[in-house]
Each structure stands twice: as structure tokens, then as C-alpha cells.
Design a protein around this nucleic acid. Sequence first.
DNA 1: TTGTACTGTAATAAAAATTATTACAAATAA
DNA 2: TTATTTGTAATAATTTTTATTACAGTACAA
Lengths: 134, 134
Amino acid sequence: MNGRFPIALHIMTLLCSAEGLLSSEYMAGSINVNSVLVRKELSNLIKNKLVSSQEGKNGGYTLARPAAQITLAEIYETVKPEAVLGQAKNQPNPACPIGKQINQHITELYIDVDKVLMQKLGNTTLLAFVAKFN
Amino acid sequence: MNGRFPIALHIMTLLCSAEGLLSSEYMAGSINVNSVLVRKELSNLIKNKLVSSQEGKNGGYTLARPAAQITLAEIYETVKPEAVLGQAKNQPNPACPIGKQINQHITELYIDVDKVLMQKLGNTTLLAFVAKFN
DNA sequence: TTGTACTGTAATAAAAATTATTACAAATAA
DNA sequence: TTATTTGTAATAATTTTTATTACAGTACAA
């Protein structure tokens, strides 16, 4: 697993608590990662309609919708990996009766786990998450 | 995220459906990864009392307890990463009011998510998981 | 209309994590 | 006592992640 979700959440938190537009440079300063990485993640958030941007001088980024209407599930959705609990890159032996079937059963398990996870994350709005900050 | 959980689950599934002892070499053949990696994961499963081993010729591995008494939560526990939904390696800017606090709030969120996840995985025994195989 | 400060994105490099390989000591069955 | 297996360390190869550099395009503002 990588750091995409924490970074996306950090971005969304910053945007939620900001007045106007924020630049990727400013956010990179708060998160403490490279600004190109921030813009890449923002580009992804824009594609998913959670953020909107304004190009040009004095441009920047802002939430596309009210924070009360955005859940953590939607944010996670934008960075969600193929496999919730990890994906091995091996190809199990098709000649083995277990190896032949295991990927299918893991996939089914992951679908169930994902459901539970999304339900949990869907319970918290971005606004509620940010409200916890002092 | 890495492939440790699928591999650990594959190991446990093989052991569950086996009669006697299985060698790491055999399991590596089914999983299709290096046998040293399998032994490393087995070593971890042994440390967590889910597997026991027998050294020497004709040695191998077997479940330490009946599969009906082992849940997927216990298996996940043995490979669980620090951060369920990913960990960024950045150190957020302590001079930023958001950056200063975000890690604490992410940690709290992760504790909640972990609870839900473990509950879900705790509902399925290894025996039940393996029963799905044809 | 020109300079400045942004976004957007590609290409590449650096760093970190994961997996594979090699090697060998120790155990135990035959 | 030989063969087979676990246990583990050291190292190499591969893959993934993150950083850096570069620059085109947009829009504001003097």
C-alpha cells in the first residue's frame, strides 16, 4: 500500500478549511511532498468531481461540492487499489486444485471486505472529519 | 500494500486441505513464489501460533489448531500493516495548523476502520473459507 | 501586450520496498 | 551417514513510489 489516501485526505482537509483557492505549492508545503505529486493527486480528484481548479495567475484549487456532501468513502474511492487487503503478483499454479481457485475466492472475500469498508467510510463526511481539528 | 495477505491465506488454505505435513517447496509450487519467501511467511505464522513445523527429513508444516478455530482475522493480524488504508512517508509541516494535527486524526480513523475490518474477517473461519472450494 | 504566477502533464531520475536468489547451518528420518 | 527438510542471513534483481526537471497553456494585471 502507498500513501495516496493520506495525501488525498490531507488535500481535501486543506481545501475544506480554506477560504478561497489554494495553490498546489502551498498544499505541498503543508503535506511536505513534491508539488507535482500533489497536482497529480489533484488531477485525479478533479476527474472524480471532488475538486475544481482555476488555471492562470491567482488560480488554484477548491472543493467542487460542499464538504457536508462529501464522504470519506468518495475520497477513498478515488485512490482505491485493485485489492483492498493486498495483491500478490504471483500467478498461482493452475495445476494445483487450490492454486487454480484461490484467486476467485480471494476476489469474493475482497468484495465483501470492500463493502464493509465503504459503509464505514461513507458514515463520515469531510465536514465531520475536519470538525475534529482544533 | 503488498502481497503478504494473499500469500498467507494461500498457505493456510493449503495446510487446511492437506492430510499430513506440507513442505515449503511444495507450497511455493502452488503459490508460484520463491520458497524462501514462503518459509519467511511460515516463520511469521508459526510465531503467531497458527502453524507448527517439523524440521528434518520428511519434515514440513501443519496447522497448529483446528481450522474451525482459526478466523481470517487472525491470519490478517499476522501480516497487518501499520496503516490499514496506507501510510505516506512524508512528515506533514508542523507549522501548518492542519499539517500539525492530521496524522493524529488519520490514526484515529484507521483505528475505527481496523475495528470494522477485523469484525468482518473475524466472522469467517478458515474452515468456512476453504469449504467454498470445489 | 507583456510579464508573472499559476495549472497540467510528460519524461526522467532517485529512492524505497518487494521479491528472488544463493548459501549454508541445524535437525531428523531412513 | 546420507538425503531431505527447516531456519535464516546476505545479497541481487525487480518493481513501485516519490522527486525532479522541464515546459506548454491559461489568465490576471500592470
